[in-house]
Structures are given as structure tokens and as C-alpha cells.
Computed example of a mutant assay.
Amino acid sequence: MSPRPISTVTTDLVVAPAGTLVRDEDEAYVRRVCEEIERQWALELKNAHTKRAYRRCVGNWFDWTLDNGVSPLAARRQHSAQWSADLQEVLGASAVNQALSAMNSWYEYGLDEYPQAFEIEHTPWRKKHRVETSDESQTLGLDKEEAQRLRAMSWEYGAADAAVIEILLGMGLRSAELEAANVASYGGARGHRTLQIVRKRTKKQTLVVPPDAARALDEHLARRPGRRDGDALVLCADGKRLTNRRIAGIVQRCCRAARIDKALSPHGLRHTCATLMLDAGVPLRKVQRFLGHADPRTTNRYDLARHDLDGSPVYDLAGYLAKA
């Protein structure tokens, strides 16, 4: 069976009003159409470096929209805004703006050359989705050497502090996610140590716990023989649950001891986790999915991808940090 021409793309797709793909088989077809437009669009880009960067960015946009059950051919401005917000948790302002510019360029070309292929008349990109750039980073993070020093110093304060640092840095958790984690959420699956957390909007995700974080948790929990499943995963020295303020205090104390002259926040360790994963060669989309950036409207057919333990980027990061 020969592929349908681009001109017929909207004749039999089942697309909901918000651009959501209804049938599974539509995804493969939409991706094929988008990639064909992308190949033609790339011929218009003269600079080889820009072409590589833009094609990578547009490919990430296709992955993000389709992972969230949305057709790129019918994406709205709210999708562009959410993608921009998700990228900002992983990339710097300049890289986010480059991705948005690439996406906008693809839409301008596609809507001009293949208007019949789209369910929209205008690009979903808006100027307000751009990130303001400045000489100072919006989120402070650590380089590899600083991260190694911080991890080593955290063990000087005991297993609880080490667990906090290892989890925030090695797994990229938000403070609220660590606060909410209970003893029962820590376990194992498929030969991995795992932690089930609750992301934003009550979405659950199971993550691999890297070896050093697991060692810190095991040591900390071993000192709490009377613990119950509903108890906090990590307790402070006074036996109370972690709070955002207490987590920030642990991060700042360990930074001072490691002679890291940065006003680092817990979110800065999440930023560091993402940056170092990218430095370790983990693909951007894999980092985004690991950090829980998929839209909550993602359909159930992506559950297995989100819970892929064997290929967790936690292992890539752990190996990268273990190298001198």
C-alpha cells in the first residue's frame, strides 16, 4: 500500500477539538507527514550548524506533542507554552529560545507550503513563550567537579543528609516529591531499587534509585527499626519529616562544607541533574520524560515508556559522576 499524499492528511484523521489524537494509528501517519515536511523545510536552511540544531529541536517537538497525544499538525498555543515551560527545567534560556525559533520556522514553512496538511491556520508559537535572557543564569547549578564534592561532603553529616543530596542530585526530584515520599514507596522491581513518587497533578512515577542513594537510604532506614510504611522516607535528626525549608538547609550546609560558593537551592540540584545527564550523553527527550515533563493527558499507551527501568538515565549519570 503506497503512502497517502500529504494533501489528504486531514481527510480521515480523528482529531479532537484541542488537537488530541484519538486513534493510535493516527500517530504513525502524522509523524510520517511531519517528518516529510521537516525534510523539505530543512532544504531551505543554508547553514549546516543551524540545520542540525533546528532539526534536532523540531524532532524533540514532534516527540513531545505525540507523547502527549497531540498532533503537531493541530497543536495550539497552550501546547507551545507548556513545551517552553518543560524545556526551561532542562535547558538554559538561549537553548529554549533556539528550540522555539526552530519550531516556529517549521510551522511557517509548513503552513505556507502545505496548508492543507494542518488543522490550524497560524503557528502556535508566540513571542511571550520566549525566555528572557540575562548575563546571569536563572537557575544556579553545579558542574561535575562541584557535584562530586557535594556528594562526598554530604556523607560527613550522616546517612539522612547523604540521602537527601544523592536523591536530589542523582534523581532530580523536586523538594515536594521528596517530602511526600514514604517508606512504602521505596522498593524494588526487575532487579532495580525503585522509588515511587507523586509528580505534579498527582501523577505517579516509578524511578530507579541510583546505587549511592540506595546505600544512603538503606543505612538511614536501618537506624529506624520501628518504622512503618506510612512514615516519611527520610527523617531529620530530630525525628521530624523533611520540609522544603529543612531540605534547603541541608543543601546549603553541605555546599558550605564543600566550599561551593553558590546560593544553591534544592531546585538547583534538579537543574544540575538534568544538565549532567545531558553532559553524560543522555538524549534530551529521555531526560524530559525521566524528570516527569509529560503532560498528564498522556494516554495509557505511554505508561510502559515512562516506567522503563532498564534504560533509566540514572545509571548514565551515576557512571558519569563516578569518573574522575
Rank of each mutant, 00 (worst) to 15 (best):
R4I: 03
D12L: 08
P17L: 14
V30G: 13
R31D: 09
R32S: 07
W41S: 03
H49S: 10
Y54H: 06
A74M: 13
H79M: 02
Q88S: 04
E89M: 08
L91W: 04
L91G: 05
L100P: 07
A102I: 00
Q116N: 03
E119V: 14
W125D: 07
R126M: 04
K127R: 10
K128L: 08
H129Y: 08
E136Q: 05
Q148W: 14
W155A: 08
A159N: 07
A160L: 05
A163R: 02
E166S: 11
L168S: 06
G170T: 06
L173M: 00
L178N: 01
G188L: 05
A189E: 02
Q196I: 10
I197S: 00
K203L: 10
Q205Y: 01
T206Y: 06
P210K: 14
P210H: 08
P211A: 08
P211W: 13
D212S: 15
A222N: 13
R224D: 00
P225S: 11
R227V: 05
A232N: 01
G239D: 03
R246T: 09
I247Y: 00
I250C: 08
I250F: 09
V251K: 03
Q252H: 14
A257K: 10
I260H: 09
K262P: 15
A263D: 13
P266T: 05
T275Y: 03
M277V: 12
K286Y: 11
Q288C: 12
F290W: 07
L291G: 09
A294H: 10
P296G: 11
T299Q: 15
R301W: 15
D310H: 10
P313C: 11
A322M: 14
